[in-house]
Design a binder for these strands. Structure first.
Lengths: 318, 318
DNA sequence: AACATTTTCGCAAAGCTTTGCGAAAATGTT
DNA sequence: AACATTTTCGCAAAGCTTTGCGAAAATGTT
């Protein structure tokens, strides 16, 4: 319509220095009128990179992931990217399929939290060989040579335990999640390390529960058997199980019993008194994961494992 | 490598009847070895449709949306689609930008829950004119000529109220969310309709709160002033505010006070006794939204407003 | 005015598929 | 054996950009 070539129009719209002001103006005006919108597929095909990141998680409807995703989305939008969300429903096969999906849609990078059953991470490494950076977050593989961002399990555990010790608690019940999850083991190890520091001045019981209901049962049993004066809950799931029993038995917090948890903070503030917790923020982890992705995409970076700090949020439950 | 044309390879990989079995076999084998993967961009460019849906929500980290998204993702995956998630942070401008994003990446369809401040829905209708179907869900515009799937606000409210009436409650405190939200008004209207049915046998108080904290305050005030024997909570947010006060004052549920809520069920089961609620399932809504999208994409369908049923889940709080 | 330099634009290829149409090869029919 | 039909494949265009390179036009320089 303007009697000029496609290449001139293309350059005009991208403010290329080769094109005169007048031409640019004319092109922009007509583009406006015609509501021209570049075809993303053609751009991607030509430039061979997309403005999308893949996010692979075991399940979205997890206490932790939606704050991570929400925070990550906020960040990527600023840079003109979008997020493709894929759930693995804790199944390594679907996870693999999701990975393939990401590779096929040639995303710019992938954020992945692996399932509890994922053992073979070679497929992930293979994707990285094709210059699609992968940032593992939260549930990360044990294998060293990959980029990971995690919450500070050991620090968070330490903070939570220290809070109990400061309050001179003597009999701690520590409840952990599924014994097969690495996160449980990390937090357990940190817990036992703290206990070891204290020598025999503190006694403690340890139990595992892989659901809120199981946590309720374990807690009820422990109440009868070991009469703890404080409970350490490794996760929101455990905490909700414990709190249900506390409401049922009308146990007075913190007089009869102290509670401390590790959490991102949503669940703890539902109760009265609010539960003290060592913060593991999905929000912060999202920001960190993104900045890590950006440096990876820039290219010049070594594989690294990063953790976000944790702080103790006081809540009247200890 | 196989000494055949690109078109033959293309057809062989798609099991086109024009190609002989032997050729197909050879192509497939080599494709396997070379780990050939079709370039999605080129396919999309050529066929002009993508295997992605856009999802635009005010915020992911909402009690309701992650179950919706989770359920939707499950469904779309079966059909080979992915989900692009975009947050509007309750800002109509960002919402518009997100819509543009979807249009530009030429998604196959868009699921959108509008912000509380969205007034102009013309941009949405314009996108529909370009054959990108839009399904509004949950927070939908008042404008009729668009596809909507919603929870049954009025039925849910009715079920919740009926549960209180059955238990012969006489003084109901009804707490609603932000008075400007259409959802609050719908539920309020339904509530008042139920009350009107009962004539003067029941007295009730109504209040609004646009945060959990505000709900705590409103509830505390109402406790002193009107001494209700039952509380109706319009949403999870309201419920959490109310429950915090209940824990604080150690009010005995259901002896001193009955509680009923409208919820998708996660929050109510955190308490003891579990809170009775009329179910508004994000999970079910996701399924419905998807099936609606499919019929829209098939083309031959009129604009419709659909709602999902609600059922009362008993919980010992009434 | 003759030449050099800068400004401004267009040609054409490339990125990777899909697909209509035609043609060669293979097979069937009398 | 001569023809008709079916099977199998390839050519080439199209989808919409980007971009290197060359060329024309405009401007500057002596």
């Amino acid at each position: 319509m303007l009697n000029m070539s496609i290449s001139t129009v293309s350059r005009a719209l991208k403010d290329h220095p080769d094109i005169s002001k007048e031409t640019k103006e004319k092109v922009r005006e007509l583009a406006e009128i015609l509501e021209y919108e570049p075809n993303t597929y053609a751009i991607n095909l030509r430039t061979n990179n997309s403005k999308e990141f893949g996010v692979i998680v075991p399940a979205i409807s997890n206490y932790f992931y939606h704050s991570f995703i929400s925070s990550l989305e906020e960040e990527v939008r600023r840079y003109g990217y979008s997020l493709i969300i894929l759930q693995s429903v804790d199944d390594p096969e679907i996870e693999l399929e999701n990975l393939k999906r990401c590779k096929q849609s040639r995303v710019a990078g992938i954020f992945v939290s692996i399932t509890s059953k994922t053992e073979d991470i070679k497929p992930f490494l293979k994707v990285e060989d094709q210059d699609i950076p992968i940032i593992f977050f939260d549930k990360v593989p044990a294998f060293e040579a990959c980029n990971k961002v995690c919450v500070a399990d050991s620090l968070a555990t330490q903070l939570a335990v220290e809070a109990l010790i400061t309050k001179k608690k003597k009999k701690i019940l520590a409840l952990f999640g599924d014994i097969n999850l690495s996160i449980s083991n990390k937090r357990l190890a940190a817990f036992e390390k703290e206990m070891a520091k204290m020598g025999s001045t503190i006694s403690y019981t340890i139990d595992f529960a892989n659901s809120a209901k199981a946590a309720s049962l374990a807690f009820t049993k422990a109440l009868e058997e070991s009469k703890p004066d404080a409970v350490f809950c490794m996760s929101d799931e455990i905490l909700t199980g414990v709190m249900k029993v506390i409401q049922k038995l009308a146990i007075k917090i913190p007089n009869d019993l102290s509670i401390v948890a590790i959490s991102d903070g949503f669940i703890p503030q539902l109760y009265f008194p609010e539960i003290a917790y060592a913060e593991t923020s999905g929000f912060k982890l999202g920001k960190l994961a993104f900045s890590r992705m950006m440096t990876c995409m820039a290219g010049n970076s070594f594989v690294q494992e990063l953790t976000i700090d944790s702080v103790l949020i006081n809540g009247g439950s200890i």
